[in-house]
Design a protein around this nucleic acid. Structure first.
Lengths: 339, 339
DNA sequence: TTGTAAGCGTTATCAG
DNA sequence: CTGATAACGCTTACAA
């Protein structure tokens, strides 16, 4: 086992000073061609690589960005991470991922862990428990410390920082409009509790589209479920009681589960009943029939968030002056709606 | 903006030395009750938290573990990460995730980036390109440097280190046996190129089960696809040409896609044709019909890997002496097979 | 009981 | 052209 070699080691072996080695490796003008060659050759031979930690301490820059998200077994978040990784890596940054698992406490703990010097900035999406509590002190603290923060998808107005979201209201509006255009009269909405910022916006888009078409909103056709776990029972009860000819769901899983349910009852999709979901993931693509969805462009969101963050990290002058980037959702039409 | 406070700041304000502050905060016996109280109160007031980077430099321990995986938009890897996070966080470690995106070069770059002091150890799963090339020098290098490494799922014999895998051969064997027991005679296998360690093992399990039941192996019933992208065309061609009554696929996507295909041709699942896939993810759970799968217990694998790694990190004495943990797969029977 | 100093690996400033 | 020194923030012998 050959342990990592340091500047000191090189200096000792070559009988020069540490600073000479440091400069030589940086190809400094100050150092003679001779010495530089000697040092560089030696360094290459022993595969010298500067120690990141030491550099971080010196520069007060870690080149790490902290990502705190509620869950990772969700296709959407997975694409966001991918986008972040892509941009961050290209810029020489590493991504430290922490999962809050929808828990407020875990979110706080993770942030504190990272805020003590481990990262240069945060990208995060709020846990549902945090949104429910409405307690954002942990976010305010990091921003007050001057650590840049970018909120993605699940955001709040209570914190001043950069944000990247998609226009969820518009997405739901587009989807609902689509269903109306296809002549659907009884359009249901399966969503989660309103404290989730995105669900709330989607519900509004749904209402807006109905109102605009002079269709009345039947509150009985709106099913609100917990965002924490999959509540299959409630969905079953819902479909056994309500007669609807179209359904908009706020995520893939609700949609696919519902589709299977109504198919078992003998309904044909999209002939008897249409479905539109949110998130353009594998579930949608490979469902049977394939699912029409509102695509959220998670990867793009991740990239933009990373870009905004790294911008702030590298130009600390432009503090304040926060932006909210709103991406347009896209309707991806597949077989669960009439074409 | 109140920037982070350091020991130095506290020392200056309280007019004591830095080491006194350090000791006081650690409740050292050496320090008088008075001073300790004063220092601790002040520290609490200004919310002092030690700087992780400085501590890392001092201890030569980062409390970070590096995870390099081929992809994140794969349910299986996602569960592995979750398992790693769970154990690592409980032990006070952060997880730095890097994606190789199935590319050898990205794998190498990421590892080099992290190996220069950013992490205490690696958990990784080989990219398919790496397995194809068979070039493992980047892994050997880190182990030679004394950085602990745990390989997960996609492993190689060429590198001496801890490993966690599931018994893929057994999984495929169990699945195939199941199909045979149900009276299936023409069992197809949809897999990926053999250089992927897991695919190879699964193919062997499939063969073994057939041989054991004195069924002959029709090579035409084995379809090998690229592991890099989803090759829908080939699957379509395959099913248009072959008559089979059961299919074992090495992942969820192949399975679900195939199921939809044959359903469109009017076949009924599982009456006319049965399906078994690998990976117990959302796709399987919410497919129609729900999918019988070989569960790989990714989360458990992640936890075990994290445990093995942190063990090695914290007891560097027990170097060498590598183990390979082999988990048993489980057959999760759902509706795509006769029960 | 408190403080000084060295060290972790680098870089930057300044003197030689 | 080269090297000593200080500094980043912290810990820990060792002095005082």
């Amino acid at each position: 086992m050959k342990a990592k070699i340091t500047l000191k080691d090189i200096a000792r072996e070559l009988e020069v000073s540490i600073s000479t080695v440091s400069k030589a490796l940086k190809n400094s003008e100050e150092i003679s061609r001779d010495t530089k060659e000697k040092v560089q050759a030696f360094a290459k031979l022993y595969n010298y690589k500067p120690n990141n930690i030491a550099i971080s301490l010196k520069n007060k820059r870690t080149k790490n960005i902290g990502v705190v998200i509620p869950a990772i077994v969700h296709h959407f978040f997975t694409t966001v991470i991918r986008g972040i990784e892509k941009y961050a890596n290209a810029k020489g940054y590493n991504v430290i991922v922490c999962l809050s698992e929808e828990s407020f406490d875990r979110e706080v703990i993770n942030m504190e862990m990272l805020a003590n010097g481990s990262i240069d900035g945060f990208i995060m999406s709020l846990s549902s428990e945090t949104q429910q509590k409405g307690d954002y002190n942990h976010l305010k603290e990091v921003t007050e410390q001057g650590i840049p923060l970018v909120l993605v998808d699940r955001v709040t107005n209570e914190v001043d920082c950069d944000k990247v979201i998609i226009d969820d209201e518009l997405g739901a509006y587009m989807a609902t409009k689509k269903l109306i255009e296809q002549g659907r009269k009884k359009i249901a909405l399966i969503t989660t509790d309103d404290y989730l910022s995105v669900s709330k916006a989607r519900t509004e888009g749904y209402r807006k589209a109905l109102l605009e078409s002079n269709m009345d909103i039947d509150e009985n056709r709106i099913l609100k479920l917990s965002s924490m776990q999959m509540d299959e029972k409630s969905i079953e009860v819902f479909f056994s009681k309500k007669k609807v000819d179209a359904v908009l769901c706020v995520n893939e899983i609700f949609t696919v589960f519902s589709m299977r349910l109504v198919q078992k009852k003998g309904l044909r999709i999209p002939d008897d009943i249409s479905f539109i979901g949110f998130t353009d993931g594998v579930l949608s693509r490979y469902a049977n029939p394939s699912l029409t969805v509102v695509a959220q462009h998670g990867e793009r969101m991740g990239e933009i968030a990373a870009q905004m963050l790294i911008d702030k990290v590298e130009n600390e002058n432009e503090e304040g002056n926060y932006q909210t980037k709103i991406l347009e959702p896209t309707l991806v039409v597949r077989d669960s709606t009439v074409n």
